[in-house]
Structure formats: structure tokens, C-alpha cells
């Protein structure tokens, strides 16, 4: 029940040249999604699966093409604003649900910042919480102390995550979006400055010749050991370059810091020059946004569109052709998976977001 189905449906319904059979399929998929969302409770704040942020972004996409849904989107907005104003999250001994984009407040902040009907004051409880989490120079409050399920990423236990999905860069992207939506805010700027200094210190040169970031903070350990502890030396939307490079470039933009923007550009350019090596990933994962080509495509598109990086535009076009050649792999996958981040919906959303397409859905993954 994440935003994958309404986002794909809204992208095809929004295109003027979509045929009737596809429109009909999109309308039916949208109705099915609304029925499921209406019948199940949300389990967390984030953009992933049954999260409130993902549902709100899905409703925004749906209301964009079906104006009759605007009242439902308004109700979702009010509920999310009211809930974030009343709720509290841990500021020490944290778990993912206390801050991240996938399950926590950063996801909710991205969803509200993407909504043009939201008032700047509505963002305040979420921004205040995330700014508090950034108040130590070493960002110590982000150290994962809640017990993690040993099946998933146990190497994060008692460490500070440096990924977009679960880490400090994802929080920074949410704060950048909040700053864009609400105008100037000294507290957000100070928080982003501390995050930026920390991310500059965490950057390192990969042996393959590009600038990147570790999956968890190195803390005086050499990065090679850090990589060896983990399942893959992943470079994707979720970890390393390109994802963290985008967060660094965005922080540089909102802080008007040329040096930071240059670090983001150097990282992505060096990664593209190295041929985009992204570790050993399974075949289906290599398609998706989180770990695969669809994520790299939307990031290259963002670097081309917003940072004016011509090389990123060229790689985006190559990735489009590569994903298009693998479309037949999507159909059997679509029988069981409707997820945006790890599924075929994200691949389709990336391919459907050609020039002129509505780009609001990109907030779901910290882009624009």
C-alpha cells in the first residue's frame, strides 16, 4: 500500500497521449489502491509500505489527475499535520522510526513539504525534532540504539547510518525540502551546516577512483574495513554515491555553499567516469530505485536538471535505454510486487517521468 500504484497511475493518466485501455487500467488500479488504503491502518510515518507519508504522497498524485480526490487528500493532510503536532519521538537511543525517511519523521516531512496546501507552521513540529537530532557536532543522537531485527542490516547496531533511506543524508534532504517550502529558518540552516561538515569528513576516495561515503559512519576506522563488514560495497540511491552526493549538493544549494555543491558534483562525476560500479546486486534489485538502475536514472536526471551536469544527462539516457530493454522482466514481477522503492512501480515511474511529466512523486525518494 505504498505510493507506487497511485504514482504510476497518475503519471499515465496525466500524459495527454495515453490510450483508453491504459487509462482504464490506471483508473481501476487507483480505485483498488484507495480501497486497500481506506481499509487498513498506517503503521508508521515514513514513505515505505504502510507509512503515512507514502500514503499522503500517493493521494497527492491521485488528486492531481482525479480532482474528486482533493477532499480525501485534504483529510489526509489534516490528519498528518495533527498527528505530527501531538506525537513525540526519541532524541537519544533512537531507532529508524525516530527519524528516518522510510519509517520516520523525515518521510513525513518530505510528504508535507511536497504538498503546496501545507502551511509553513504545519512543518514546525517535524523540523524542530529533526533539528534537535542534529544538535551535536558528531551527530551522536543518530546512533542506532534500539535493537534491530537481525535479519535486516544488523551492522547498523550502535552505529550512525550514512544512507539516504535510513540515515543522516535522508534527514538532510527532508530539511532542505522544508527550507524550500517554508522560507528562511536559522535553526534548519544551523542543523544542515553541522550535517554538511560531518558529511565532508565522512567522504573518502573509493579504490575504483570515485568519491563516496560509507554506509555507516567510519569513526576512525579505515573505510576498507567498513566495507568488508557489510554485504556489498553498495553505490546506489540508498548508499554512497550517487545518493549521498545528491544530498551534499542539495545542502550546498540551500546553504549557498559552492564548496559543498562542488563536492557533490565531483563525487557524481567521478562515479560516472568510473562506469557507475554499484557492487554485486541481484538481478531484480539491479532494476529498482533503491539499489539499481531506476534510482541511478532519477538521480542522473536530477543532477542534469538542477545542477546542469551534462554528463549526468548522457548517462540518464543510457540508463533509460538499458531499462527499456529489460521491460519484459517487469511483467512477472508485477504479479506480486507493487512497491515504489524496491519494485517494478519505481522502475515504471522513473521511465514515465520524461520532460513535461509531473515531478511531485520524486519527493517520495528525496528528489524533485
Amino acid at each position: 500500500t505504498d505510493a507506487g500504484t497511485p504514482i504510476v497511475a497518475s503519471l499515465v493518466l496525466d500524459a495527454a497521449d495515453t490510450d483508453e485501455a491504459t487509462r482504464s487500467a490506471a483508473e481501476r488500479a487507483l480505485s483498488a489502491w484507495l480501497a486497500v488504503v481506506g481499509g487498513t491502518g498506517a503503521s508508521h510515518y515514513g514513505v515505505f509500505a504502510e507509512g503515512l507519508a507514502g500514503r499522503h504522497l500517493g493521494l497527492l498524485a491521485a488528486a492531481h489527475v482525479r480532482p474528486g480526490l482533493r477532499r480525501l487528500a485534504a483529510a489526509s493532510r489534516r490528519a498528518l499535520v495533527r498527528r505530527t503536532a501531538l506525537d513525540t519521538w526519541r532524541t537519544s537511543d533512537v531507532g529508524w522510526e525516530d527519524y528516518d525517511m522510510i519509517m520516520g519523521p523525515a518521510g513525513a516531512l518530505l510528504a508535507l513539504a511536497a504538498d503546496p496546501e501545507v502551511m509553513p507552521t504545519d512543518l514546525a513540529p517535524l523540523t524542530a525534532h529533526l533539528v534537535t537530532l542534529c544538535d551535536r557536532p558528531e551527530l551522536e543522537r543518530f546512533r542506532l540504539r534500539q535493537r534491530l531485527d537481525e535479519r535486516y542490516s544488523p551492522w547498523n547496531q550502535d552505529r550512525i547510518n550514512v544512507g539516504v533511506a535510513h540515515g543522516v543524508p535522508g534527514v538532510a534532504l527532508a530539511l532542505c525540502a522544508a527550507l524550500d517550502a517554508s522560507g528562511d529558518d536559522a535553526g534548519i540552516r544551523a542543523a544542515l551546516r553541522r550535517v554538511a561538515d560531518w558529511l565532508v569528513a565522512e567522504a573518502y576516495p573509493d579504490p575504483l577512483g570515485f568519491i563516496t561515503w560509507p554506509t555507516v559512519a567510519r569513526e576512525n576506522r579505515p573505510p576498507a574495513r567498513d566495507v568488508a563488514e557489510q554485504p556489498t560495497a553498495r553505490q546506489a540511491w540508498c548508499y554512497g554515491t550517487p545518493g549521498v552526493a545528491w544530498a551534499v549538493w542539495e545542502i550546498g544549494r540551500v546553504l549557498d555553499d559552492d564548496g559543498l555543491q562542488q563536492l557533490g558534483r565531483t563525487a557524481i562525476s567521478s562515479f560516472l567516469d568510473a562506469g557507475c560500479p554499484n557492487g554485486n546486486i541481484a538481478l531484480r534489485e539491479s532494476l529498482a530505485i533503491c539499489h539499481g538502475d531506476a534510482g541511478l536514472l532519477v538521480l542522473c536526471d536530477a543532477f542534469h536538471r538542477h545542477a546542469g551536469l551534462a554528463a549526468a544527462g548522457a548517462v540518464r539516457d543510457l540508463l533509460y535505454a538499458r531499462l527499456r530493454a529489460r521491460l519484459t522482466e517487469l511483467t512477472p514481477w508485477s504479479a506480486t510486487n507493487y512497491a515504489l522503492l524496491n519494485g517494478p512501480a519505481g522502475v515504471l515511474a522513473a521511465l514515465l517521468t520524461r520532460p513535461g511529466a509531473d515531478r511531485t512523486w520524486l519527493y517520495t525518494v528525496g528528489l524533485r
Binding site: 503519471l11 487500467a25 511483467t331 508485477s334 515504471l348 520524461r354
Partner: peptide
């Protein structure tokens, strides 16, 4: 819009609607 991408999207949406 790319017809092959739209066809894949249609197949996905039909599965999501089923």
C-alpha cells in the same frame, strides 16, 4: 510517451487492479 513503457505500465496497473 514511449509506447513500450506505457504497455509495461498498463500490464503493471492491470495486475495492481486485480
Amino acid at each position: 510517451t514511449d509506447p513500450q513503457v506505457v504497455a509495461a505500465a498498463r500490464a503493471h496497473l492491470m495486475a495492481a487492479a486485480a
